[in-house]
Amino acid sequence: MVNEGPYNHQASDSAYRFTKAALDKGHEIFRVFFYHDGVYNGTRLGVPPQDDRNITQLWQELAAEHDLDLVVCVAAAQRRGILDADEAKRHGKDADNIAERFRISGLGQLIEAGIKADRLVVFGD
């Protein structure tokens, strides 16, 4: 569970590194769930300076390599203007901004992960 936005807070970097390390050690990652400002990790419109890391892209690459399930909470995302095409249409917005490899879904996905995974790790304050 990632509870903070990228760049503003180290939570997302730590979660990324933890996920990568766990995968490298042969563990399975059931799901990464983005909540609170963590949903901003899933925008495809971020343009960080070229000499800095691109956190969204790091997640996307890791997801492509390991078929990771990156889930952005729909309620938290709506508040903060993170939308996929369906959500944009439903709410009459003129654009969507969810990054590829991320998907928007409900809080039930977080609870399900807590039930199914051996461990749930929270990254945030």
Binding site: L107, I111, I115
Partner: peptide, 19 residues
Amino acid sequence: TIYALESLEVVLIGAAFDQ
């Protein structure tokens, strides 16, 4: 901050899971 409100939202959704 919004943490308390959004925590409560998780609790209410989570209550449906019979844990």
